[in-house]
């Protein structure tokens, strides 16, 4: 019993360490965002003078609001397309035999490992030639491309877990291949698709390199990129407060997602990687 109690307190210490590890950097930026500009330089972890002014500031900043809209719009469209295309491909990979299957798996693996910077220079030039530079489409295209390997891997792992016999049963019950897919497979794969959609959205939301390289104004610049353009010379003397507030704002939705779908995200992140 003594040993049991000791290991319980040991795990409690471990829990505290993990919670501190994960939370402290986040709490710090949240604390900064609530600090009154006059107290930025006090170096204190907890604000001495609380204010909501930083938040009021960024939400009256047209660039930031526009950046949020861009982030949400571009993220949702990219995620939707990636899920639709990815579901189709993942189903084929998990269930059908056809020539080029290994090639498709290979190509998506290559893209998953691809250094994004290597695409920046040619895309910069190509998108300027095609008029896609600084547009939503100009960001959506690379986002779909880099989200696809993720969706294909994760979803094909989910599809593999749906018993083969259900599809056979649907065929025997008189379903066309599409009916079998739509009425039997999709409802069962829906949890997997939600998970995958969240992962894909997090990827798009998190991107910074494409967002600063393929945009030149607030027409398509996403929120993370907008933040990096906050300077003291505009209506804020010191960007610290607004950057912190903006960082908190773009972080909160993702953290909520992640906490809410914790179990599924863990399953999704690991399924593609380990089961292959």
């Amino acid at each position: 019993m003594e040993a049991g109690r000791r290991s319980v307190s040991g795990w409690t210490v471990a829990n505290v360490v993990v919670v501190l590890y994960a939370m402290v950097p986040v709490l710090w930026i949240a604390s900064l965002s609530f600090k009154d500009p006059s107290t930025f330089t006090d170096g204190s972890f907890i604000p001495r003078k609380w204010t909501l002014g930083n938040y009021a500031g960024i939400f009256t900043n047209a660039d930031f609001v526009r950046g949020l809209v861009n982030s949400i719009g571009i993220g949702l469209i990219s995620t939707f397309v990636a899920i639709v295309f990815g579901t189709m491909a993942a189903y084929a990979v998990a269930r059908l035999t056809f020539p080029g299957k290994r090639l498709l798996i290979g190509v998506s693996l290559l893209i998953a490992m691809f250094p994004q910077i290597s695409l920046v220079s040619p895309l910069f030039q190509i998108e300027r030639a095609l008029g896609l530079f600084n547009t939503w489409a100009g960001l959506i295209l690379p986002y779909i491309t880099f989200a696809l390997p993720l969706t294909i891997y994760t979803l094909s792992a989910f599809f593999r877990e749906i018993p083969w016999e259900l599809e056979k049963a649907a065929k025997m019950d008189g379903a066309t291949p599409f009916q079998a897919f739509w009425q039997v497979i999709v409802p069962l794969a829906a949890p997997g698709m939600v998970t995958t959609a969240i992962l894909a959205f997090i990827f798009c939301w998190n991107d910074f390199l494409f967002a600063i390289s393929l945009t030149s104004s607030n027409a398509a610049r996403t929120a993370p990129a907008t933040i990096s353009f906050f300077t003291g010379s505009t209506q804020f003397e010191d960007p610290t407060g607004s950057i912190s507030a903006a960082a908190v704002v773009i972080t909160i939705p993702i953290v909520i997602f992640v906490l809410f779908f914790q179990r599924r995200i863990v399953a999704g992140l690991t399924s593609g990687a380990v089961k292959g």
């Binding site: 950097p25 900064l32 998190n206 773009i250």
Partner: peptide, 28 residues
């Protein structure tokens, strides 16, 4: 033994955070 769910949840916070936002946190 205790708080497994808590650890598994909390640990996802760094994963979920936008890299740029976290980077500003470290910078400041």
């Amino acid at each position: 033994i205790v708080g497994r769910g808590l650890i598994r949840t909390v640990v996802l916070i760094p994963y979920g955070i936008v890299t740029v936002a976290a980077a500003y946190g470290w910078k400041y």
